[in-house]
Every structure is written in structure tokens, then in C-alpha cells.
Design a protein around this nucleic acid. Structure first.
Length: 238
DNA sequence: AATTCACGCAACCGCTGTTCG
DNA sequence: GCGAACAGCGGTTGCGTGAAT
């Protein structure tokens, strides 16, 4: 499953790690820490480069690493975070204790990407929200009030328990913008998201195509709406 | 039983950002 | 302010494994 071990031209070992190497690395770091990855291999008696040692420790040997199966909650969180952050695997990993960026990246490419690509545009399954559910502006505003309540309850949770993450801080309320906004405080985050959503809905009103979602002439705007709804579903049905 | 193929994941590579002298 | 050294990140690759034929 991994590359066969070999030595490069500098005499550094590459490829799969042996149990003996793992033990040496683990023992060294547990005793002395890893203040300097460059020097660590020599000090630990390993014929590896510092990069390789760091990667092995971070992705495999670190005591907090969770190598179990991903839960549905973790997968949903990754999907939401990916929607808002893009391929910022280290930032996503920071929200999932015990999971490394590499592990999440692999899981995304092998499992979740397919799942997201199969996301239903207008599915009735699981009560997924769809464009045709929103018959007029009043319903859009109703949706926003629901999401707003969700936002403030999350903000309260955040206050009472700082270590738990708010659900909204990982949901893509930038609507159709590709700009990452994860660093925004929750309030700004929400207001930016709501504006984007309303903007997209206004566009939809202008086209007067609430019930003709598949009209290809406005596909770009439909994509925007779709993104907003996908985000909304992330909040409503997670 | 043998072969082919797709998948999953550990590890590598190159680039960027940060720190330090 | 500048350049070298280092750490970290994200994209990609190599290969073992198991399912399919």
C-alpha cells in the first residue's frame, strides 16, 4: 500500500517506514519534542529527512491521531467546511480533533467529493430545501429568519462553551463568492451571508423564473442560488 | 485460479510563508 | 531590508489490496 523503501542519492531513506523507525521517532519526540525537524533525524538516529519525519509524526504517530472510521457528523462537517474554505485542508483539520490534513484530504478525494458531486439540486429526500420551495420573497425572508435564529443560538453556544465550534462558522454563507470568509466573526459572517443570499434571490426575482429552475439561459445565477441553498441545507438539515 | 482494474492511503515533491541573523 | 534556513501546506504519485471478470 505504500512505496517500497529505498535510499536516494544523498543516502536518505525514502518510502515506507519500518516499525523500528517509528519507534525511534516516537521515543525521541516524546522525550525531547520536535523544536527542529531539520536536526531531528540525526539526533534520533534516523536516515530520513526532517520533512519525512514531520509528516510521519503529524499524520501517523501523533498520540492524538484518530485512525477510526469517519462519523456522519465528521463527514458533514468536512463537506460544510470545504464548501466555505475550499482546499484549505489544514484549516479544516483544525476543526476536527484527531484528524490530520492529509487524512482529511485523502478522505475527501476518495469518498466525500463523489458524495458532494451527487448532491441533489431539487430533491425531496430528507426534506432538502429547493428553489421551488421558495414561492415568493416572504418565504425567502422566513428562511432567513430561521437561519438567523440558528445563527444566534450557535453564537450563544459559542459563548457558553468556547471550545465547541459554532455550526455557522463553517457554513458557506459567502453564497456564490469564492472568497474564503472563515476568519470573519460570526456576526459579520452572518450578515455577509444573508446579503449574498438576498442578492441572489433578487437576481432570481428579476429573471422571474422561480418555477423554471432548469432554464439554461440563467444557469450562472441558478448556480449562485444553488450554492446558497446548498449552504442553507447545511444549516437546516445538519 | 489467474488476471485485470479501481480504490484507498501513505508518502513524496515543489511551492509559499515565516523566522532569524 | 535582504537572503538563507526552516516549517508547513496542498497537489500528486506509487503501490498494496480487494473486487470484478
Amino acid at each position: 500500500m505504500v512505496r517500497a523503501p529505498y535510499f536516494d542519492k544523498n543516502g536518505l531513506k525514502k518510502g515506507a517506514w519500518s516499525d523500528n523507525e517509528d519507534e525511534k521517532l516516537r521515543a525521541y519526540i516524546e522525550k525531547y519534542g520536535h523544536s527542529n525537524w531539520r536536526k531531528l533525524p540525526n539526533l534520533a538516529g534516523l536516515s530520513r529527512c526532517g520533512k519525512s519525519c514531520r509528516l510521519r509524526w503529524v499524520n501517523y504517530l501523533h498520540p492524538n491521531i484518530n485512525r477510526g472510521n469517519y462519523t456522519d457528523e465528521e463527514e458533514d462537517l468536512i463537506i460544510s467546511l470545504h464548501h466555505s474554505l475550499g482546499n484549505k485542508w489544514s484549516k479544516i483539520a483544525a476543526k476536527l480533533p484527531g484528524r490530520s490534513d492529509n487524512d482529511i484530504k485523502n478522505h475527501w478525494h476518495t469518498h466525500l467529493r463523489k458524495r458532494v458531486n451527487q448532491k441533489p439540486k431539487c430533491s425531496k429526500e430528507r426534506g432538502v430545501l429547493k428553489v421551488s420551495d421558495l414561492k415568493d420573497r416572504n418565504e425567502v425572508e422566513l428562511l432567513l429568519s430561521i437561519l438567523s435564529a440558528e445563527s444566534s443560538s450557535d453564537a450563544n453556544k459559542e459563548q457558553s462553551s468556547p471550545s465547541s465550534s459554532s455550526s455557522l462558522d463553517h457554513v458557506a454563507w459567502n453564497g456564490y463568492s469564492s472568497q474564503p470568509i472563515s476568519e470573519e466573526p460570526v456576526e459579520d459572517f452572518w450578515s455577509m451571508g444573508a446579503d449574498s443570499f438576498m442578492e441572489a434571490m433578487d437576481l432570481m426575482n428579476n429573471y422571474d423564473q422561480w418555477q423554471t429552475y432548469d432554464d439554461s439561459s440563467a444557469s450562472g445565477d441558478h448556480d449562485m442560488i444553488d450554492d446558497c441553498l446548498w449552504s442553507a441545507n447545511g444549516v437546516l438539515w445538519s
